[in-house]
Amino acid sequence: MTTWTMIITLSKDVMRIVADQDVVPFRNRVKECAVKIKMGLVNQTKLITAASELGRNMLKYASGGETLIEIVTRGRDNGVRLTFKDKGPGIADLSLAMKDGYSTGKSLGLGLPGAKRLVNEFDIKSEPGKGTTVVVIKWANG
C-alpha cells in the first residue's frame, strides 16, 4: 500500500501477550489510544474486536508474542496501528488462512478474515518455522 510510507508515528507502546488474562489490559490500551484520537464508538469497537482476534490467534497458535500499539498520522488522518509479532510455527498457506471458515484449530476460521474486514489496512507476513507478523491500521474516520 503506497500510503504506508507517509505514515508518521506519534506514540508507541509495547505489550506482551503470553497469557489469556493479558488480552484485557491490551484491549484497554488499544481503547485508550482510540479515544485519544477521537475515534467513534463503532470504529473503536471494530478495532478492539479485531485486536482481540489477532491477540487470541497469537496466544493459541504461537503461545504468545509481542504487540506494538501506535498512534499514527498521515496528515489530517489519525489512526491506531497495531502490530502482532510472534515466533510461532508460522502459516504455510496465507491465502488459505485468510479464507472465511478455514481453521486448523477446529474453530470457525473467522479471526483473520473477520479482523481484515474490521480495519482499514491489513498486512500479514509469515514464514513457516519463524513466525507471523500482522499489522493493522484503523483510521479515526475510517
Partner: peptide, 14 residues
C-alpha cells in the same frame, strides 16, 4: 447488546 457490538459482529461474520 450495544449497537456498536451488533454491527461489529455482523462484519466479523459471526
Amino acid at each position: 447488546m450495544q449497537p456498536a457490538v451488533a454491527i461489529t459482529l455482523i462484519e466479523l461474520g459471526l
